[in-house]
Design a protein around this nucleic acid. Structure first.
Lengths: 221, 221
DNA sequence: GAGCGTTGTGACCGACCGGTCATATGACCG
DNA sequence: CGGTCATATGACCGGTCGGTCACAACGCTC
């Protein structure tokens, strides 16, 4: 957690530092990210970093927490309050999640890296927490979907949660390929034109379609 | 590619080295893996590594190629020649892939790491090739499935291939959690009892079930 | 044995890492 | 002005890395 010193910092400097740190962790995984580079990019001495945070790990935890709060907040704030059916709600959740990824590529890149972080001792706890929170959220949706009669009652819930989670997370890769959108470039050179929402929705329709109907050709009943 | 020197090595020494290198790359990602540690574990001087391979990258490429050939060969050799339906064939493919993962944890761990390798310049090409080969294989299955009438003709093939690929790859994580089987431990301390094939099949049934029928409760036709 | 090509060796190189700490700076107070 | 305290600094530390190279050891033929 940030020290009092960091919180007392003039806002401009604090943000300059945060931006530099996000830039670094959005492009590099934990081990490859360099505190020295962050300090250089922020225009401060390396020693100062250790006046603001306990160390690399502490800084990382702070950034991931911040990014997760922003993304979950963004999604929650974009969802309508009234509960539509499972598939509508799930599609909207993924849709707004993707919108967040396009408009906040740094934060999204950090979260993506954190999710796939090779399990070193310094990052395992953070990754596990992130994964647990996402799966808990999805499990809530699935449970409600079964109760509401939107989903088959004999569904293997564990597997369904796993599948929805994996596909949601890796959808980023799919979109990147399908729309030729490089998130790495977006982080490095800011922006790039995000995918039109219509095209995004079309992909999500294919996604939900497979979830809902399956892939099999059903012989006419 | 290995040098002539490496190929002239007595088999025992060559295998001792290969084993040590696999051990290292199965547990660490590319950047974290250490040539010095490999040399130490193999009981040779570090300089010798550079008599056998052009460098770290070359060694890595060799190992990934070797592991991929073994795994694809194992699966191909285990599949029946006659083409059953799409879902049966897909389930068998994943089944034998999982069997390979349990019985060859080092090779499988290396492939898994290579798949999720953070995209540094040294590993990007290898990861992309691995992913392309897997997706090409799956696309073949899907195309055949549509032609045979096993799959809906209006299926979004791109998305289907992506989903099947992602779920197959990450199935390892799911099994690890579901069966409390640590692949990392299996690599480090050899073996551990693999999941009984019945339990494995039960998971794959749930997998294929979702693929085939979808998740929606269908009102009685 | 001498000569020679192949293979083995590990000290060494420059680079970078996370983290520390003695010291400098500067703002506030009496 | 002196004193005090929060903050800023960057040279420095021990460590590890991938890679090199001068040299030693070996195996072969003559």
């Amino acid at each position: 957690m940030p020290t009092a010193t960091f919180l007392h910092l003039p806002a401009e400097k604090r943000e300059r530092f945060t931006t530099a740190a996000l830039d670094e962790f959005a492009v590099h995984d934990y081990r490859t990210a360099s505190v020295s580079r962050i300090a250089r990019a922020a225009g401060i001495a390396k020693g100062s970093v250790y006046q603001y945070f306990d160390g690399k790990q502490d800084l990382y935890l702070h950034l991931v927490t911040l990014a997760a709060e922003r993304k979950f907040g963004f999604i929650d704030g974009s969802l309508p309050a009234d509960a539509s059916g499972f598939f509508t709600r799930f599609r909207l959740t993924v849709f707004h999640g993707a919108r967040f990824d396009f408009t906040h590529p740094k934060l999204a890149g950090l979260l993506y890296n954190a999710t796939y972080e090779p399990t070193g001792p310094e990052t395992r706890a953070v990754s596990a927490q992130l994964k647990a929170a996402s799966q808990r959220y999805i499990r809530g949706l699935v449970d409600a979907g079964i109760r509401a009669g939107d989903l088959r009652a004999d569904l293997d819930v564990d597997f369904a949660v796993f599948a929805l989670y994996q596909l949601s997370v890796s959808l980023r890769d799919y979109m990147s390929e399908r729309f030729d959108f490089s998130f790495a470039d977006a982080v490095r050179h800011g922006g790039g034109s995000p995918v039109p929402e219509d095209d995004l929705m079309a992909v999500l329709d294919a996604f939900v379609d497979v979830l809902e109907r399956g892939m099999a050709l059903r012989s006419a009943a």
